[in-house]
Design a protein around this nucleic acid. Structure first.
Lengths: 237, 237
DNA sequence: GAAATTTGTTATGTAGTACATAAGAACTAA
DNA sequence: TTAGTTCTTATGTACTACATAACAAATTTC
């Protein structure tokens, strides 16, 4: 963390542009005035004059806030504060090819943590229908055990369904974004190793077992992935 | 999810501006050309001409990418692709006051999931020194049990230390960002309810117990928070 | 008089020009 | 060779102008 943050801070102090400052000031302004979603903002020219910068600079800053979904603009009506899509910005940046290997590893682990912590939510929210659908997915897989592309697709379907059962949309979306990363890391593995507990086993546990049973099952299921942590396939420096 | 995503998409199609398009195109361009961090990008004017838009528009799009940390610019040297800080953008948007209550609830749950899933990483990475420090924090708390601000501060210190022990910087930062949300949701609670297992108990388990013991202990510790899920304090519609 | 159409106003979206500034590059002089 | 100067260039900022869409007001038409 320290190294990355340090670089970041130094960079930002070094070449801070007006747009950066205005973005910050606008953000503070919105917070201080405690605007609520739907509230109208001053117009660009007013902001520019108040801040003592050109409309251009203000527009660059506003463009950023627009991207984050913090403000919406409609012609004539002006700008209004809106609810940002908290994962939207995250999504834009999540490209395995430009993320450093340490962070990739972190994200890989993050997904394991999520998966292991999911049990409680699942047992609070699961319904018979959910389990039925989950079982359908698992069985589909048991039949067609050959092609690797199919295996991956079903792997995603199964675990995706688990997140869906959690009833937490944000979590589900988050997991969905993490998939490419996870896939990228795993695909760098030489051989495919599957855990001792497969998807059908997990469904069975979900049907008749306890939360603790499920957690243990999930751990076994993910064991190959945990193994790579111990093996130091991705060394932390 | 569906509703939120749908709105989002519709919005973006409805009033799509040139800056939006250029931002997308640039992103695609970077990905297609498989630029690596450090590679130089074409200059603004070239991009503007190639895309058939004004330099203004290109700058708005670039301003966004700059904010995300995807590109850095130095005068004269031009722009270079750089590694985005994957949590940076996320951080800007995480304001409890503008996030809708459903998402707040999702994030609240997300933190519980993380906490419950942390055990495996902890047991892989924990050292004697870590546990010592953790115990120091827990003991500090046991002595000074009065003031609520102190309690909250120590609560944060303890759980923060846990994430630190996980050895996952991204996870640690992530948790740190989630804190205000968590605090906001919890502070809306009428009365403070503590779990049957306190921090000192958790330290003890970490010392002599198994992963499974720790998970059960953590569950007990977080039980008051899980209770609010069942109570429907935050109903899902 | 009410509905439909036109006109006007206004704030954002886009284009284009001009100049400031900083950072290399090239050149000159000791 | 090295120190210092000038030159070049790409980004940063400012300003102007006009397009466009949305809403408001006025006008026309039935």
């Amino acid at each position: 963390m320290s190294k990355l943050n340090l670089n970041n801070d130094l960079e930002r102090i070094a070449n801070t542009t007006m747009a950066d400052v205005v973005e910050l000031r606008l953000r503070e302004y919105l917070k201080k005035k405690s605007f609520k979603p739907g509230d109208a903002l001053p117009k660009e020219l007013e902001l520019a004059e108040a801040l003592g910068v050109s409309r251009n600079v203000v527009r660059e800053a506003l463009s950023r806030l627009r991207m984050l979904g913090m403000v919406e603009t409609r012609k004539k009506r002006g700008m209004i504060l809106s609810r940002p899509d908290i994962l939207g910005a995250f999504e834009r940046v999540l490209d395995p090819l430009i993320i450093d290997s340490d962070t990739l590893q972190d994200i890989f682990e993050l997904r394991l943590v999520l998966e292991m912590g999911l049990a409680d939510l699942l047992y609070i929210r699961k319904t018979d229908k959910d389990i039925e659908e989950l079982e359908k997915i698992a069985k589909r897989e048991a039949v067609n055990d050959g092609a690797p592309t199919f295996r991956i697709k079903n792997e995603i379907a199964f675990h995706g369904k688990l997140y869906e059962i959690s009833g937490n949309d944000t979590l589900k979306r988050f997991q969905n974004m993490l998939l490419p990363i996870f896939g990228y890391v795993v695909s760098n593995e030489k051989v495919y190793r599957s855990g001792k507990v497969n998807h059908l086993d997990l469904v069975q546990i979900l049907k008749t077992g306890t939360k603790e049973d499920f957690r243990l099952g999930m751990k076994e299921h993910l064991q190959p992935h945990f193994d790579r942590l111990n093996e130091g396939a991705f060394e932390k420096e």
